[in-house]
Design a protein around this nucleic acid. Structure first.
Lengths: 209, 209
DNA sequence: CGTAACTTTGACGCCCCTCAAGTTGGGTGG
DNA sequence: CCACCCAACTTGAGGGGCGTCAAAGTTACG
């Protein structure tokens, strides 16, 4: 959103407490009353299928909005959990709607944000082979970190391999094998959760998204 | 949306001409100025990838809204084409936004519609085996027809096998084999584009969505 | 009736899932 | 501080589902 609107937003925002690993912003089925803007750290959103297993919907960095999926049924459609220490800013949805009515720019921003989610490129990548999905994930994460002033070539992956795998709809073994292969090819370096992207152009060529 | 709001909507709606097979409501990249409500017939939405191939995003029945994806970038993100004779109702987006400001219920309806698209169950089904995808497609189409007063057990599929396949991210051969298998199992009957669902409970059990 | 587009069916191969075993690293308690 | 434990990660072997390729069957339309 535009910086000149931030003072408007502040009037309806309530800052939440500091969250730690496994703390939830909200859970699937909770009554919907607010959306949250990530302020620091990384959040994971997921739903639970019939067997109680997670289906990872996304990883959310500072500045991104979570909870919009609750609009549809007045209950949250997903769970949002902190991956490590994190903070988020709460926006009462009723107040946000009211402001949106009075400020057309805010209304448009809200609609634009939701429209972007509908068009999300993640859907396209789920139709590609496993290796391309993994490369796309790394490039997407890198780009979003870079947009927030962090290094695009050296960063940490706060989530487990199984979360990445679940998000990309492949198995953690396949993610592991893809990482290993990319490392022996020299395109990335990886040590635990620490990651280097050595040849972003080559990676972009590989992902072809 | 609520019937009691329809007279409001009519004031901003402009009825378009009758469309025929292959006529487009809009094309990817066109400047975004309006959304469309399907009034009769079926529309297909799709994007074009780098090689000029289609990627089918959805099939849209009377009462459903298409074109919302254009909000994100002020240009349509997809193409919308009629599958046979069809009509659609045009809503100027600026007028719609203005009305949404004055009528909170309309604002909420719009947001709810978009939120539903974000949560669309289609995403979940793309993570299932081919046969389940096909069964889900049939059940989804059947349900939506039934909600519009048509038969849930006997109907026509206006799209080609390759469109169904593309939509479900499998090949048309796999769709064909799934149809054949379901027919020999007695769960469906299929002759050209004419379809019977003989055992919906069994099909629901198969799709497990 | 002929042609082109669509659909169906079969054979084959590869990618990725499953299953299994081994390795690594962080956390805990003695 | 060290030994232990458990979760997470890595690596390998084997199998099955689905894509690819090919060919025959079917329908629409001139």
């Amino acid at each position: 959103m535009q910086p000149e609107k931030l003072h408007e937003i502040d009037t309806i925002a309530r800052f939440g407490a500091v969250l730690h690993e496994d703390d939830h912003l909200y859970r699937e089925g909770d009554p919907f009353s607010a959306v949250y803007a990530v302020r620091s750290g990384v959040f994971k959103t997921y739903t639970l299928n019939g067997d109680g297993l997670q289906r990872v919907l996304g990883f959310h960095l500072p500045g991104e909005l979570v909870g919009l999926d609750g609009i549809a049924s007045n209950r949250y459609f997903s769970c949002a959990v902190a991956l490590g220490t994190a903070t988020a800013c709460r926006f009462s949805f009723d107040a946000l709607l009211d402001s949106a009515r009075r400020f057309p720019d805010l209304q448009k921003s809200l609609l634009r944000l939701m429209s972007q989610e509908i068009n999300a490129s993640r859907r396209a990548v789920l139709e590609r082979p496993a290796k391309e999905r993994v490369v796309w994930f790394l490039l997407d994460f890198s780009r979003r970190l870079h947009e927030r002033g962090q290094s695009a070539t050296h960063f940490f992956l706060p989530m487990m391999r199984s979360d990445i795998a679940n998000y990309l709809n492949i198995t953690s073994e396949t993610v592991s094998r893809a990482f290993s292969r990319l490392q022996t090819e020299g395109l990335i370096g990886i040590k635990q959760k620490e990651l280097w992207l050595n040849d972003i152009p080559a990676l972009i060529h590989l992902s072809s998204i």
